[in-house]
Amino acid sequence: MQLYNTLSAKEREALIEAAGQERLTISFYKYAHIGNTAIFRNHLFIYWNEIDVLGRIYVAKEGINAQLSVPAENFEAFKMHLDSISFLEHVRLNIAIEQDNKSFLKLKVKVRNKIVADGLDDDTFDVTNKGIHVDALMFNELIEDPDTILVDMRNHYESEIGHFKNAITPDVDTFRDSLDIIERDLTDYKEDKKLVMYCTGGIRCEKASAYYKHKGFKQVYQLEGGIIEYTRQVKNKNLENKYRGKNFVFDHRRGERISNDVIAQCHQCGAPCDTHVNCANEACHLLFIQCKSCAGQMNDCCSNDCKEIHALPFEEQKALRKGKTVSNKIFKKGRSEVLKFKK
């Protein structure tokens, strides 16, 4: 039985264009105690492959984390399937603010040790013992309270292009880096301050809320549904939008505009810009911020060296990449020394 992709991204892209159907980009997560993760993974792949779901889904003993797209006409079938799974019945679905039919081009359902890497090794830490969820209205009220400490649980390259006003934005590369740093910096406020957290869709700050409760914080809150759901509620309920800039997303779009503020700058020239790109040199693929002017001058590359390599014939580029790994550079996320105006 087929339990893996058989089409390349380019082949899938052509099929999507030929179908001409609207697709919905959706994310959801759920912390739960899953017994046999391999069986659950295969169950999801078999059914979702049949209804043309594409995306990146992680399954672990602690739950599921999914970012995907589904044809709009198959949404009800998809939702009914989720509701047929006991711990996913009525799970909150974050539907993207800005749609893109090509946000995902393959279906990948993978078993992982954790759905959010946290670097923790603590058997007494229960991820389901979470903090208090708040909606957009309550969140707006909480963050104006002088007894509130607002923390962005995302990484530096995410908060760089957008964040809530007055938020603490840790200068970290990964979620696991932020947990101990935040506890250390806020340890004096465990008893008397309200710790309010937010992230993209809620999954990171839900785990963080359980972790900080475990570490002794008395008043722990999280923005339910994250920035994605906050934006929807602000629009639907005509609330004040306290978010500035873009929301970084983990698909081909790389960002959704939440406000007209541009709070970041091009990493190459320093001009106001909040557009993330990957270096066109496949041997580099560095994620960084680049304006249209620099993209034209640099042929979509991060440096002159990469520009020269990208100009070579494909086979020569491929030969240069052979036997080399650049994952350490990719995950610097804009920290490369070649970028003059990096954060």
Rank of each mutant, 00 (worst) to 15 (best):
V220S: 05
G226Y: 10
R335E: 14
F87I: 00
H156W: 14
H310D: 11
N42D: 13
T37R: 03
A60V: 06
K193L: 06
Y189S: 13
K235D: 05
V326Y: 10
N247K: 15
T128W: 08
L239T: 00
I39D: 14
Q99A: 10
Y157F: 14
I168L: 10
Q222M: 04
K237G: 01
L195F: 02
E337W: 01
F78E: 05
D100L: 08
T275E: 15
F175L: 07
C269N: 06
E224G: 10
D305M: 07
R56Q: 11
V172E: 08
E183P: 02
Q233D: 10
L287T: 07
S86L: 07
E224N: 15
G226C: 12
T200P: 01
M138Q: 15
S84D: 15
R176Q: 11
E22W: 01
A208V: 02
M153F: 06
C279A: 11
Y157H: 11
V70D: 00
I289L: 13
F139A: 00
A66W: 06
A38S: 13
D147P: 05
S336F: 09
G255N: 04
N65H: 11
R232S: 12
A14W: 02
C266R: 06
Y58M: 06
S159G: 13
S293E: 14
R321T: 00
A32T: 12
V53C: 04
D251N: 13
D251W: 08
Q317R: 12
A9N: 11
L239A: 03
E337D: 10
I95K: 12
L105G: 00
K340M: 14
H43C: 07
K333A: 10
D135P: 02
D152I: 07
G270I: 05
K242D: 03
M298W: 11
I51L: 08
K242Q: 12
I182T: 13
K237M: 12
I263R: 12
H267N: 07
D152M: 12
G334R: 07
K165T: 04
T25H: 05
S303Y: 05
R92F: 09
K215V: 04
D126H: 14
G35F: 09
I181Y: 13
M153A: 03
E191T: 06
V116A: 10
W48M: 15
R112W: 08
D52P: 03
K114H: 15
I97T: 14
K332I: 03
Y230M: 00
H156A: 13
C273F: 01
E206H: 09
N238I: 01
Q233E: 15
P272Q: 00
F314T: 11
D126R: 10
K246I: 04
I57W: 06
K30Y: 08
I309S: 08
L142N: 05
H133I: 00
R232D: 09
D180E: 15
A271S: 12
Y243K: 03
D192A: 14
G20V: 08
Q265E: 10
T6K: 09
N260Q: 11
A9W: 07
V196E: 09
D83C: 04
